[in-house]
Amino acid sequence: MSDKWRDKLSEQEYQITREAGTERPFTGILLDEQRDGIYVCKCCGAPLFPSETKFDAGCGWPSFYKQSTDDNVGYREDDSHGMRRVEIFCKQCDAHLGHVFPDGPEPTGQRYCVNSVSMTFKSGDDEVRG
């Protein structure tokens, strides 16, 4: 299975989505994206986050307060790097997306902190970015 992903993804995309890496803060191409659309999984295209749930958390990564209604984001404990966090991943292909924290805005109180590299943005006119 890893050969499939190595052929499809760049080295950075592979390292982040398949090996649970993290892009440097404030470097992601989707951090400042403001258009209406949907953020989908870079690996399989599953809908992840609608643009209307994106907000500026000031953390350096695209942040959302709610996943898409398709419920394609899964959760698992992550005790790496000496921290206790909740990893988020694509339920369709198991791609690492980032982490979720309980310090987001209402109505959910959640902050889905996502690597730009793990997503593709599709605007209303189907333009793809990321």
Score class of each variant (00 low, 15 high):
residue 1 M to I: 13
residue 1 M to Y: 11
residue 2 S to L: 13
residue 3 D to T: 12
residue 3 D to W: 11
residue 5 W to S: 02
residue 5 W to I: 00
residue 5 W to H: 09
residue 10 S to H: 08
residue 10 S to R: 05
residue 11 E to I: 12
residue 15 Q to P: 01
residue 16 I to H: 04
residue 19 E to T: 06
residue 20 A to D: 03
residue 21 G to R: 07
residue 22 T to R: 10
residue 22 T to N: 12
residue 24 R to E: 07
residue 25 P to L: 00
residue 26 F to A: 00
residue 27 T to K: 05
residue 28 G to Q: 04
residue 30 L to Q: 04
residue 33 E to F: 11
residue 33 E to Y: 05
residue 36 D to E: 15
residue 38 I to V: 14
residue 39 Y to K: 03
residue 42 K to V: 04
residue 45 G to A: 05
residue 45 G to I: 01
residue 46 A to I: 04
residue 48 L to M: 10
residue 48 L to W: 06
residue 48 L to T: 05
residue 50 P to W: 05
residue 50 P to G: 07
residue 51 S to N: 11
residue 52 E to K: 15
residue 52 E to A: 13
residue 60 G to E: 15
residue 61 W to D: 03
residue 63 S to F: 07
residue 64 F to N: 07
residue 66 K to E: 06
residue 67 Q to C: 13
residue 71 D to V: 13
residue 76 R to T: 13
residue 77 E to M: 13
residue 80 S to P: 14
residue 82 G to A: 05
residue 82 G to Q: 07
residue 84 R to T: 04
residue 86 V to C: 11
residue 87 E to R: 02
residue 87 E to D: 11
residue 88 I to C: 02
residue 89 F to R: 07
residue 90 C to Q: 01
residue 90 C to V: 00
residue 91 K to E: 12
residue 91 K to A: 10
residue 95 A to K: 00
residue 97 L to D: 02
residue 102 P to C: 02
residue 104 G to T: 10
residue 106 E to L: 09
residue 106 E to N: 09
residue 108 T to L: 05
residue 108 T to S: 07
residue 109 G to M: 01
residue 110 Q to L: 11
residue 111 R to K: 04
residue 111 R to H: 13
residue 112 Y to C: 00
residue 112 Y to H: 09
residue 114 V to H: 08
residue 114 V to K: 10
residue 115 N to Y: 08
residue 118 S to W: 08
residue 118 S to M: 11
residue 121 F to C: 06
residue 123 S to F: 12
residue 126 D to G: 04
residue 127 E to D: 02
residue 128 V to W: 11
residue 128 V to Q: 04
residue 129 R to P: 13
residue 130 G to L: 14
